[in-house]
Amino acid sequence: MNTSIDIIMLVLIVTNLLLLGFSQLKSCIRAVACQGIALGVLSLLVHEDGLTVWTVVMSGVVIGLKGVIFPRLLLGALRETDARHEVEPYIGHMASTLAGFAALAASAWLCSRLPAFAGRVTPLVAPVAFFMVFVGLFVIVSRKKAISQILGYLVMENGMYVFGVVILREMPLLVDLAVLLDAFAAVLVMGVAVYHINRAFDHMDVDQLDTLKG
């Protein structure tokens, strides 16, 4: 059981580092999609005391939303905007990946300082959750394209999902659903916003959104 959870954690770490290193937006979207599928599987694995119908359904919903629907929406938005499909980071891919490693080390250190997380499920889980939040934030602030910021937001949200699923185990179903619904709406709204930005400015480089000041 714990070995398979650790495998999932490794998948999450690798997808994060890939996200930091990829130069094509399409590949980045696919990396985040893989992460979504891994999360769905994770929510099946943590329930060691037998699967209920609801856990299976929830895991299906997670895989469907985060693994299939979100990526499709984002790829669709990418097609609509005929901008160049490169990531255009402020910080180079190499430096970003190194920053990712640093964030991993920092979150491991952070969690070793918090005794409340010791001995929960496997020692990898809490650091990975924090790592994903850091990576998400890093992607949001270090990339120019609006779609990258949506991806960063999704990774952050995924990190919190890991935290919720593993540390709490029993989130009430309704809350789980509400959170997923919000994530869905967020991606939808942000996707439409990207479309509007593209129409109003003929690009989706958020570094050029700087007329409002002071």
Binding site: L137, I140, Q149, V189, A193, I197, F201, V206, L209, D210
Partner: peptide, 16 residues
């Protein structure tokens, strides 16, 4: 264009 810019900032900063 100004209102779209404001909307995007609002959306990202508040969501995060």
């Amino acid at each position: 264009s100004a209102s779209v810019e404001a909307m995007w900032k609002y959306l990202i900063i508040c969501s995060v």
